[in-house]
Design a protein around this nucleic acid. Structure first.
Lengths: 187, 187
DNA sequence: GTGTCAATTCCGACCGGTCGGTATGCCAGT
DNA sequence: ACTGGCATACCGACCGGTCGGAATTGACAC
């Protein structure tokens, strides 16, 4: 309970003010505990960042695997992936904002762990696009790398412009993006 | 001369270690001067960030205006804009990385100034897409907002994956992206 | 060419304050 | 009696920024 509250407050503060600009004292004050409690559950401030990233990536990878496991055609699969990204991003917008901004703040070991997870996500998406292109189901105006970066780029930038109370819901944006991407992939 | 050297070193260090994690002392040490010199040219550490952003945005806006002034058809104009973005991003990759990461580190006044410049860039691109969509020259699978974010997203994420010594030059990536985007906009 | 003086450019010691992290111990539950 | 779950008090390091003054430069008179 305390552990979760500390993490939740850390996400909010890191998203609002940045990792370095947020002091451990601010985190524990907002969580209603003291530094003793924080350092009881976490060995270092960096572990807060790591946990935030790790749980986000774990969640996204689980969704991705579930989508791929359904074995639908490439267009449907890609649309589902884009939807899944938009959903997790809109639900965890602060964590995604922290993730895209403070990516290199971790030490080498922790960073490599997360990088491997993120790589798996990338490679899966690219594999789907590449296979479909080679099968002639998708057009190949652009490489899987550039296409995937266009998709990921929209998502990482979402926290800067997406407003949950705005006119468009996350899933609508996702479908717009999917329509556009799939139009660009139509043979 | 000294001023420029300080700025150049600041960009490198901010890109490598982040704004907050970089001390003024590190900047001046790398530049081969002392803190007195830095605070002779800049009123505060924040001004280093502001100058980095401002010169980058000024450059990009000038290129954008030049492209629009040529008055070519929407597809050509959009391709030129994408090329221009990829070029400036690859040439100033560290500055772009800092820009996308430390965007909210400035105080309100300086931030508003830059935000207005960036808004002008966004609105110009969106206007081109919207006008062409309304004229039936571009398809409207997605809104100008989502399409422009796809374009900008690729650029802001470029510093994380683009390697100048890699197999693809920046202009090739730009053309790939332009081909893909224009395919998605074909009526 | 040379001396003069003022402005510009820069030095580096120093300051108040904050930071991440630690040492110690209280206390409720078992 | 012992342990997990915290609070409190504190530390050394370091930070952004200041300040008095030392060099360096440039304009101008002679």
């Amino acid at each position: 309970m305390v552990r979760e509250r500390i993490l939740a407050c850390a996400v909010e503060l890191f998203a609002a003010n940045g990792y370095d600009a947020t002091s451990v004292q601010q985190v524990v004050t907002r969580a209603g505990v003291t530094k003793g409690a924080l350092y009881h559950y976490f060995a270092a401030k960096e572990d807060l960042l790591f946990e935030i990233y790790h749980s986000l990536l774990t969640d996204q990878l689980a969704r991705l695997d579930a989508i791929v496991a359904r074995g639908a055609d490439p267009a449907t699969t890609l649309r589902e992936i884009i939807r899944s990204l938009a959903e997790t991003t809109s639900e965890n917008s602060r964590a995604v904002a922290v993730f895209s901004r403070e990516a290199s703040r971790l030490d080498e070991e922790r960073w490599q762990t997360l990088r491997a997870e993120w790589r798996r996500y990338q490679d899966t998406v690219r594999g789907i696009i590449r296979d479909a292109q080679e099968a002639g189901v998708f057009a190949a105006y652009a490489s899987p790398e550039v296409i995937s970066w266009a998709i990921f780029g929209v998502n990482t930038s979402m926290p800067t412009w997406f407003r949950p109370d705005g006119p468009k819901k996350a899933v609508e944006i996702a479908d717009e993006l999917a329509d556009f991407v799939l139009a660009g992939l139509r043979p």
